[in-house]
């Protein structure tokens, strides 16, 4: 087993452990913190895949900005314990295990068929390469994203604002 494979298993363990913890924690605040662990592990995996820029963006935007938003909202609301418990009487709970097994089996069946060798001499996702592509060849999706974010800002402000008495 090579050094890269050992690193992959280490990071994959962090990612899967964090993801399992998201499901097992009853308090959403602990779920959010577990998700941050998952994101950090994913950022490490991105770097091993030569996507350095996205690894940093994953930490700054996901673990930094998005998860802080979640944590703020969780702390803003008073969450009672009965809201967070899994209801054993819901039929979905019993359906989840077989459905999850079927989904995982189908995905793994497809995934194990893939066999592709990594090309050599590829410089990966540097800031220069991503920025050049984003502002020349893929300018339209980039600009469309800014419109989307503007809509999200206006929508979030409108939804969260207090109604006038």
């Amino acid at each position: 087993m090579t050094f890269e494979q050992i690193l992959f298993i280490l990071f994959a363990g962090i990612v899967v452990g964090g993801a399992a913890s998201v499901l097992l924690q009853r308090n959403p605040l602990y779920s959010a913190f577990s998700l941050i662990t998952t994101f950090v592990g994913l950022a490490c995996l991105y770097v091993t895949l030569k996507a350095q820029f996205l690894g940093v963006v994953q930490i700054v935007v996901y673990a930094g900005a998005i998860m802080m938003l979640f944590v703020f909202v969780i702390m803003l609301l008073n969450i009672r314990d009965e809201d967070t418990a899994v209801d054993p009487n819901r039929f979905l709970v019993y359906l989840t295990i077989p459905l999850g097994a079927i989904l995982l089996g189908a995905l793994l069946y497809v995934v194990t068929k893939v066999n592709l060798a990594q090309p050599t001499g590829d410089e990966g996702g540097t800031v220069e390469r991503i920025g050049t592509n984003l502002l020349t060849k893929y300018l339209l999706p980039f600009e469309a994203t800014s419109v989307l974010i503007l809509m999200a800002v206006v929508g979030a402000l409108h939804l969260a604002k207090r109604e006038k008495e």
């Binding site: 899967v16 993801a19 499901l23 959403p28 969450i79 979905l92 709970v93 989840t96 989904l103 995934v111």
Partner: peptide, 21 residues
Amino acid sequence: LSAVLFTLGAVGVFLKRNIIS
């Protein structure tokens, strides 16, 4: 790993009752 992560997320959406989770 991606498949495992996706399955965990999908199972979570089914299991959780809390909208934030």
